[in-house]
Design a protein around this nucleic acid. Structure first.
Lengths: 233, 233
DNA sequence: AATTGACTCGTACGGCGTACGATTTGATGA
DNA sequence: TCATCAAATCGTACGCCGTACGAGTCAATT
């Protein structure tokens, strides 16, 4: 009997290094592994969205039986957790060159964060229900260090970080949402114009139509950082 | 044959007023109605969370058969849409007394918004995938009008609104997430302290532990509004 | 040769959303 | 009074889901 269901601890497959072509080469398929599962899950999520990821489909893509996944992964929730954190991995070892101005650094970090999530739009809708994985924590650490090095007092650090976090998450969630089905935007604006006596200001400002998402993100972020900076006097 | 599946148009039950105790009083149950369905869905979501809402359970609570719901509602997605917007209904006709300072007004509006969503934590995880209902639009309109009246130029209005929206959504999503399972927070912090050479700043600032959510929300919001205000010079 | 432990997977179960069509009900007008 | 009809309800069934369970495979170890 295998040591299955070992409570919270995830099993690590410990394939011996000696035989490079050991098991399961009948289709030329590589053996299952957590890495391969997570990578394939990300692909599948990119292609089919949150609802498109099922254990059976994921297993199919891996050339495996559905139940085989459960040796490497506790349940479907865990797959989501791992995929989300994987999507937020830094492509390059981050900052390397810390820039001229700390503001510039912060903006760069957060823009990369945002781009990273928009590349995998499902991550925005997944994030509200997931835990913080090592990659997310890594980004928080990097941001904290940058602000701290810039002279933000420890007392103000948490407020600063959470404010920036809130802003980025909110912006990304919103953007990804509006992107997914552009009929949302159109439908909402139609509702607005249809009842323009109820929403006159929104209609006048064309809030839901003229969306320069990138520019708006950048400007709002500047406002927030400006507020943070003047706070320290 | 009934006029079912009439594309996008939702059917309105048109019970005649004449007989107050017409149909389906065998259990003393009121007849189904969109209102009753949505209200019960909100209750169910409050009690059981997003995964706890199924059409069968919802129908049970209403004393009806599962398929009866589909006369009033297109599909389960629509139930989510309606429940989300219902959760964001203003309790009282909003502002009434517009305050001394426009900043005070904005803060009040956004705090109410946040409280409203935290009262129904599922709304935070639902929001990323839903359309904007009339109540959400109403809140946006109110916010727009307040800023516009305060003298924000139309050109800057959209940036201001989206920035505030981003902030509120991000803060609420984050807060609701951390609330749901406090082991998230503990687990993440344990991972941090376990690997404190990797996350030294986070550990020092106790980012994940000393969370004065309300205070942080308020302070960060002040920063953002401060940034918005100085922008107009 | 026997044992063991890592790993794979077929079967089955309960629950889900909902298509479909039969049924009930109350109002209408002949 | 009774046939007709639209509004509304709901039982059955289908295909899909997550995953519990246990049997099967195979290399390494004894």
């Amino acid at each position: 009997m295998a040591a299955k269901r070992s409570s919270t601890e995830t099993r690590k497959p410990r394939r011996t290094v000696s035989s490079p072509q050991s098991a399961q080469q009948r289709n030329g398929e590589q053996p299952l592994s957590l890495q391969r599962i997570v990578a394939t899950a990300v692909d599948l999520l990119d292609a089919e969205g949150v609802d498109g990821l099922t254990m059976r489909r994921l297993a199919d893509r891996l050339g495996a039986g559905a139940m085989s996944l459960y040796w490497h992964v506790e349940n479907k929730e865990k797959v989501f957790d791992l995929a989300l954190d994987a999507a937020l991995q830094h492509r390059a070892p981050p900052q390397a060159a810390l820039a001229l101005d700390w503001r510039e650094d912060v903006v760069r970090q957060l823009e990369d964060w945002r781009v990273c999530m928009l590349r995998h739009p499902w991550s925005a809708s997944l994030l509200p229900r997931r835990a913080l994985g090592p990659n997310i924590l890594g980004r928080l650490e990097l941001l904290s260090a940058t602000l701290s090095r810039a002279g933000v007092a420890d007392a103000d650090l948490n407020v600063a970080i959470w404010s920036l976090w809130n802003y980025v998450i909110g912006a990304t969630v919103t953007r990804a949402n509006f992107d997914r089905s552009d009929d949302d935007q159109a439908a909402a604006q139609k509702r607005v114009t249809g009842l323009n006596e109820r929403y006159p200001t929104i209609e006048r400002s064309r809030l839901l139509l003229d969306s320069d998402w990138d520019g708006t993100f950048r400007k709002g972020l500047d406002f927030l950082i400006g507020g943070l900076a003047t706070e320290g006097k």
